[in-house]
Design a protein around this nucleic acid. Sequence first.
DNA 1: ATTTTTTGTGTTAATTTTACACTTAAAAAA
DNA 2: TTTTTTAAGTGTAAAATTAACACAAAAAAT
Lengths: 229, 229
Amino acid sequence: MINNYSSEDKVLLAVDCIIFGFDEEDLKILLIRRGFEPEKGKWSLVGGFLKSEETLDDAARRVLERYTGLSDVYMEQLAAFSEVDRDPADRTISMAYYALINIKEHNEKLIKQFSANWFSVSQAPSLIFDHDKMVHFAIRRLRTRATTRPIGFELLPEKFTMRQLQKLYEAIWDTTLDKRNFINKIRSLDIVVKLDEKDKKSSRKGSFLYQFDPSKYDKKAAEGFMLKL
Amino acid sequence: MINNYSSEDKVLLAVDCIIFGFDEEDLKILLIRRGFEPEKGKWSLVGGFLKSEETLDDAARRVLERYTGLSDVYMEQLAAFSEVDRDPADRTISMAYYALINIKEHNEKLIKQFSANWFSVSQAPSLIFDHDKMVHFAIRRLRTRATTRPIGFELLPEKFTMRQLQKLYEAIWDTTLDKRNFINKIRSLDIVVKLDEKDKKSSRKGSFLYQFDPSKYDKKAAEGFMLKL
DNA sequence: ATTTTTTGTGTTAATTTTACACTTAAAAAA
DNA sequence: TTTTTTAAGTGTAAAATTAACACAAAAAAT
């Protein structure tokens, strides 16, 4: 087939990933020191260029696996950033993705290898290019996502306490919540199962562990809800 | 500066626009018969390729102006579509945008010139490539947008009746609403001003015209709300 | 045994949402 | 001029949801 588009401009297309993790206290993002020019050594999101034989989702997954060692990560396309001079080296459009991972599960070795670091979103250093804008965009999106879809599965360990789940929402929304109203609301969503086990790390008394019910969780993830807290 | 990215693949980047209009009854989209191969003559979204000296928003605005004659159109970036074979002619990634326009204001001549046509979203023909997917995506986005931000300004004439506004929401959400509850809700948002004029077209009695209060509207557009109806 | 710490739980008031039906205005028809 | 027709305009009560709020229980540490 004749290429009808031969006179059109081609551009570089990158993906940059905002990787969120949660450490029981703060919402964090994974940043690396950039290993090449321009802006070598500065803090940056993880990213890479789209290859012509893969989709953008493929590219994002590839980047995610490269820097965290994790596949099967929850990931969503965010937005394209296309200011003409956003990357001084060449005309590059970047597709931002955000990912939610269980911070305990990523590969520590890779973190070292790439001089990566987890930063609380409120204490992150300023980033190269338009990456700060991307991060803000991602936080905004995560906030709305947390109000319309369940998110705990992605960011918490398999078994978790209600307090942990509440702290996660508090971190995402940067607010404090009433624990009684919170637990009632979560129970009414009918996506968690209370276990008999207790977690003793956080208190003398110990607190009951919960687990998500995968099928109910997925159902809610698909149909959505409106979580007002 | 040395180009550090010289070994990376470049791709064609297109924008495709879902242009929504409202004709007092139905939510419509503007489609054109494609003027070149591949898929020449088939129904398609309006689109074009990104030029290297413009941003994606610029490109979308350019496409919008070319096909509707309108500048200053409300427009939002939607999502990138990047299946490897989505366009059989060449590897092309498309950034979908959606736009909301006042259907009365677009340029009729251009419509003819491009063999364009307005279709009710429920009766649109099937489109080339992955354009159907884009349209569905856009409708979904428009629905959530209508629940979190005001939208009337973009799709209605300057002066409108409550019934028109209600029909707009009914069309977007594909539902019916109670007029008393609707009007109370809209009034509580405090973004419209009731005028003394009446519109006599729709009934003997005539119905009062309203206008958006630009500053209040913009404020609500920026801060958002949660519209449950 | 006492202190300390964090968990766990239920009720009431306030607010928001939903359901619902009749009158009014004015043109058109008789 | 009277009657008919059509869509506009309006308010209240019940139901559902959300928000506010405080104390007892468990268990480890002293």
